[in-house]
Structure formats: structure tokens, C-alpha cells
């Protein structure tokens, strides 16, 4: 299992605020890596730098063995297979669920192939019953699934999931975790940015913790979450954050 994404010495500042400082981490192919940390620790900023929304001040992002030039735009990074979802789901609200996925499937396929791929993704993401529903009318849970479904249509190698569990009830969370496992089973590597620690423990093979823009620690999720430094930084207390 090789390294899919390698982040070296990544830094970015906004004005005087050092949002991310000298960050190093890697993701192996097929892995589900959790990126956790308290609010403002630099998780989403890191995702935005990998996705191309922010240009880092310093550092190198290597993807699939190649350095991604800072100038490479967002769309071209997506074409390489780097996909992401957003904290707040962003469906194309003027289109149906089917058309949301079909539009993206058309980027890499002919019309008939795109239709087949769309149908397969609808089944995988259990959105088949809602195919003709206007995506603007979906519940939060289904919108998040639609975000994931669309990323699947980009033929991704890596999906960065930004707080997919936020705002979901326990039943919805279980269903979403099943979906993430199913996506990972397809051979897709996942960077899982999350605050819900039960979810992290449930699906992730490894976790890295950011605090104030710096890497605090990394390791097996349960160990990391019980690390006193992490507990102090994340929760400001001594609770077992794994939920035990």
C-alpha cells in the first residue's frame, strides 16, 4: 500500500494569524485517516490548501507521487482525483438529485456511460428513490449524501469529507457511516475531518490531531483520543473522548 497524499512543511497565514504551521502528514492508499482538532485548529484550512482554494505560503503537497504545483486550479485538482465535500452541503439546488450526479459524471464519460454511472452511484448512496426530487428540497442528511454521491462521479482517488456527521441524529449517523465504509470499500482513500469522535473511532484506521495550526499527535484513533494532550487541547477536560 503506497502513499497517496504526502503533505510536507505546509504553512499558511492570514494577516498575522498563522492558520497552519509546518504541517507534515501522509495518507496511504485505501486508508481512512481522521483529521481532528478543536475549532480553529486549521483542519478546513488544510483541506482548502489541498483542494486548491487557498495557496500555501510554504510547503509541498505530493499526490500520487507528483508534486501539485501551487498554481494548479481547483478544477484541475478535482480532475486528478482529489474530491471534497463541504461542511455545509452545497447541492446544485436548481437540479434534481439525478442531474446533480449526472452533470459531474459527464465530465469524464460519454452520455450513455454517464447515465449508467449515475444509476450505480444512486444505488450505492441509497438516493435512488429521490432521483427525480429537486435537490434543494432534501434533508440535511440526504444533502450530505448527495455531496458524497457527486464526488463519487468524479472518479476520485481521495475524498476529503469535511464534517459529514455534523447536524445528523444517531440513526442518520449510523447510515452515513455505512455509506462511508461502502465508499472506502470501492478503493477510495478518505480524509475524514470530524468532530464526532464515535464516528472517528468507528471508521478510521489512523488519526492525526491539529491544534493551533500545528500537528499535535498521530496514531491509532482510540489511543490518540485518550492522549492527555489531545483531551486537554480538544475538550479542555479529562473525559474519555472515545465515548467509553
Amino acid at each position: 500500500m503506497g502513499t497517496l497524499l504526502d503533505v510536507n512543511d505546509l504553512s499558511i497565514s492570514f494577516g498575522g494569524i498563522k492558520a497552519v504551521q509546518n504541517l507534515n502528514f501522509h495518507i496511504d492508499t485505501g486508508e481512512v485517516l481522521a483529521l481532528i482538532g478543536p475549532n480553529g485548529s486549521g483542519k478546513s484550512t488544510t483541506v482548502n490548501m489541498i483542494a486548491g482554494i487557498y495557496i500555501p505560503d510554504k510547503g509541498i503537497i505530493k499526490y500520487d507521487g507528483h508534486v501539485i504545483p501551487n498554481k494548479m486550479d481547483i478544477a484541475n485538482r478535482a480532475k486528478l482525483g482529489i474530491a471534497r465535500t463541504f461542511q455545509t452541503p452545497r447541492p446544485f439546488a436548481n437540479l434534481t438529485v439525478y442531474d446533480n450526479i449526472y452533470t459531474i459524471a459527464l465530465l469524464h464519460n460519454k452520455y450513455t456511460e454517464a447515465k449508467e454511472i449515475t444509476n450505480d452511484i444512486l444505488k450505492l448512496t441509497k438516493l435512488d428513490n429521490l432521483r427525480n426530487t429537486n435537490s434543494g428540497k432534501l434533508s440535511i442528511e440526504k444533502r450530505k449524501w448527495l455531496d458524497l454521491a457527486r464526488t463519487m462521479a468524479t472518479r476520485p482517488k481521495l475524498i476529503m469529507m469535511d464534517e459529514v456527521m455534523a447536524g445528523l441524529n444517531p440513526a442518520e449517523m449510523e447510515a452515513s457511516l455505512d455509506l462511508i465504509r461502502a465508499i472506502n470499500k470501492e478503493g477510495i482513500t478518505v480524509l475524514f475531518i470530524e468532530h464526532v469522535m464515535k464516528a472517528v473511532v468507528s471508521v478510521c484506521t489512523r488519526a492525526i490531531v491539529l491544534n493551533q495550526g500545528k500537528l499535535l499527535c498521530e496514531g491509532e484513533p482510540r489511543e490518540v483520543l485518550n492522549n492527555p494532550d489531545v483531551v486537554a487541547a480538544y475538550l479542555g477536560g479529562e473525559t474519555d473522548v472515545a465515548g467509553n
Binding site: 483542494a51 481547483i74 478544477a75 478535482a78 463541504f86 447541492p91 459531474i104 465530465l107 455531496d147 464526488t151
Partner: peptide, 9 residues
């Protein structure tokens, strides 16, 4: 933003 992040130029 979503369109661009999914690869649409």
C-alpha cells in the same frame, strides 16, 4: 464553488 471543486472549468 461546488461546481469548480468537482472539476467543472
Amino acid at each position: 464553488t461546488a461546481a469548480e471543486s468537482l472539476g467543472i472549468e
